[in-house]
């Protein structure tokens, strides 16, 4: 089982291409407020994660996801 920190590291690398403002990423970085991702870009990011871990991330979880840390927690739960 991959632990939370490893999920986090993957998410940092996966979102780097969309980090247009070149801000320093942390688990509290907000996908929308800090990174400025549009809804379409959030979905592209989600697809990268799904393909990497061979999981499907339900849209239902997205209202609870604000930060990279939130997403790492959800992905970890889905991949258990």
């Amino acid at each position: 089982m991959t632990d939370y920190q490893e999920y986090l590291e993957f998410l940092y690398s996966a979102v780097e291409a969309q980090n247009k403002k070149h801000i320093e990423l942390s688990e509290s970085t907000s996908l929308v407020a800090d990174l400025g991702l549009s809804s379409l870009e959030v979905m592209e990011f989600i697809e990268k994660i799904e393909d990497h871990f061979d999981i499907s991330i339900p849209l239902n979880i997205l209202p609870d996801v604000n930060t990279i840390g939130d997403l790492a927690t959800k992905v970890r739960e889905l991949n258990l």
Binding site: M43, E47, S56, I57, P58, L59, N60
Partner: peptide
């Protein structure tokens, strides 16, 4: 509609 359903919602490409 699917948001209102209460089902688990997954998109395919």
């Amino acid at each position: 509609g699917v948001k209102l359903s209460g089902a688990e919602i997954i998109r395919y490409k």
